[in-house]
Design a protein around this nucleic acid. Structure first.
Lengths: 344, 344
DNA sequence: TTTAGCACTCATAATAATAGAGTGCTAAGC
DNA sequence: GCTTAGCACTCTATTATTATGAGTGCTAAA
């Protein structure tokens, strides 16, 4: 009995489902009564004992029912969830997004509202982006605002202080140069190219050229910080069990700093499709009692970013997973269409 | 005995100070022992009874010491704090801010780190700002990015979709028109003027002019949403008393939505100087157990925005108030210098 | 006016008793 | 051989009971 036969699967499934639904340890009687498994409590107890031995269930204490272990959740998510996945309810996007940034913001908000957990969206990874256009706007005598636009439609602005005045013409000469030279190239190539150009130009005394390259480089570097949209963290306060206060604090710390979350989502953006990280798999977030359901979204067939939901380990995977998947698909479509050309 | 004599003041002060320091109800013995008031517990008890009758102190229960009421805190802050205000420790600003937005962000972060409460900064109120410059960048055939810059150095970008293509020349014609016409005017005047111009132009069929006005209007309207920098909310989790969970949730909800907080700070920006809002005076934030210490910062002698700290009612006012004041002064200086001209 | 003394109150902590949920095991039933 | 009824057992959660002690309010004396 060290492999999972049908009955073991069935009972495990019931325990997980009812525990998610009821939020309490599940006893043998509960299963005979609620499920259609047609076995007596005694039999269920035997099966549960087996499941516990195999590491899928655990006992909070002697006279309590069973609770899924992380291994139990993992098995449930990977193997048992198939026929339980709920159809996605129609998604009510707010009116026309103003652009990709707005779209991602909406996505995280929708995820949060529809699940009552926290919703999160990672903007296309900088390395994945394509240089489209850079523009310089003179704000004051020696101060320049650089606006960097990627092919994906994401904007980044950086403020510069120069060591001498620049005319409008010089500024547009600079941007024209950069746009001509780098337009259409992926960012990582642009970076390398700029470094090379800088070396080449070093000898010549061409103030404009040198500073154009410098500004371009810095603008791109600044844009390279990942962007994260995080909404509905308050929901976690409502859902969380307050018996572990430290854990809660660590989680909120991670929310506030965003950095860890960003790393995790970036890593998740490596492999396409929906992924579920359960409990201590999210240790980097400072929590062992939360799960992350995340999916990549794509453009041009390649994953460029990810969206997801953070909730308690006993979150309702059967609705969250399809929802995240659906939102990701709609993001993919959006970025696809965006790339195609201007809307309408 | 319905006015506050010296002894009443002295005892009230002790209760507040020790309660802030120790976090527990203060009994008569504690005061005789810790303070240099030189009176026996019995006497203190009499005084405390008076203070309670006057509404400055309260009893959690019969056999507990006294705790300040809101009225007590109010009196303490307004009348007793004078000689207790701690000198501000030197403030360690991070390296040169990139601009006003960065500066405000730094301010809220500093406040949060130095107090271990939440720090908040409100950007100059839109109505207070002055139109400096608007620039249009064409991103795609019918799509335009408007960058609006105020005299105070705050940037706002808005994305537009037009109903026909525009050339670079047309875009710069539009921005030049707007800049010439409105440069240097306070925003509220610009708004009115645009509306007027729009009526005037309505008759003529001048696509460019009409759309310039329209874009200008929308860009300004978008910029008119207040900007709020909020940091260190996690600290509240650590400080808060968890006996009122609902309260905590409401507070974090308010943090997440920012809107209420924005309103309060905007209102606070009306009157110059440091202000303290105690307990239920912050009901709009969903909390009755927090205080807000806020101060306006100025430019050109007029208050333009505000910064502050949100913490528990029993926060350490004697260090927080001078700190907020100092940060506000430094913001004022920054905005003053910024207005003067480019740095260095 | 101040203070020592003392009875009184009430929250908090510790202890004990009870109820109930759920288990594991055994032996009987199909 | 698998299933199940029965039962003793375990352990939590609830409630009741009883200290403990901090701090008060009042009174009477200094």
């Amino acid at each position: 009995m060290d492999t999972m036969n049908d009955r073991l699967r069935e009972v495990l499934k019931s325990v997980v489902v009812y525990h998610i639904r009821l939020g309490v340890p599940i006893g043998s009687r509960t299963i005979t009564k609620l499920s259609e498994i047609g076995l007596s409590p005694a039999t269920i107890r035997n099966v549960m004992a087996d499941l516990e031995e195999l590491g899928y269930l655990m006992h909070p204490h002697t006279s309590a029912g069973r609770v899924p272990t992380e291994k139990g959740y993992r098995f449930y998510v990977d193997q048992l969830l198939g026929d339980l996945l709920e159809p996605v309810q129609p998604i009510n996007w707010p009116s026309r997004p103003e652009g990709p940034a707005d779209m991602l913001h909406n996505a995280s908000r929708l995820l949060s509202h529809m699940t009552n957990y926290a919703g999160v969206a990672l903007a296309p990874k900088p390395a994945q982006r394509t240089f489209k256009q850079i523009e310089f706007v003179g704000l004051r005598p020696r101060q320049v605002l650089a606006i960097f636009v990627s092919e994906e439609g994401l904007l980044h602005q950086t403020l510069f202080e120069l060591d001498r005045d620049v005319t409008v013409n010089e500024l547009s000469a600079m941007s024209e140069y950069l746009n001509q030279r780098f337009g259409g190239l992926p960012l990582h190539k642009v970076k390398a190219q700029i470094l090379e150009d800088m070396r080449a130009v070093k000898e010549r005394y061409d103030w404009l050229l040198r500073h154009a390259l410098q500004l371009g480089q810095q603008a791109i570097d600044t844009a390279a910080e990942g962007e994260l949209y995080l909404e509905g963290t308050t929901n976690i306060l409502t859902q969380a069990n307050f018996d572990d206060l430290d854990e809660l604090k660590r989680l909120f710390k991670a929310f506030e700093e965003k950095y860890q979350l960003l790393k995790i989502l970036e890593q998740c953006a490596e492999t396409p499709g929906v992924q579920v990280y359960i409990g201590s798999e999210n240790a980097a977030l400072g929590t062992r009692t939360c799960s992350l359901v995340a999916s990549t979204y794509e453009c041009d067939g390649r994953p460029i970013g990810s969206v997801g939901v953070i909730g308690p380990t006993r979150m309702d995977y059967s609705t969250v997973i399809p929802l995240v998947q659906s939102i990701a698909q709609q993001l993919s479509r959006f970025f696809g269409e965006w790339r195609e050309g201007p809307a309408r």
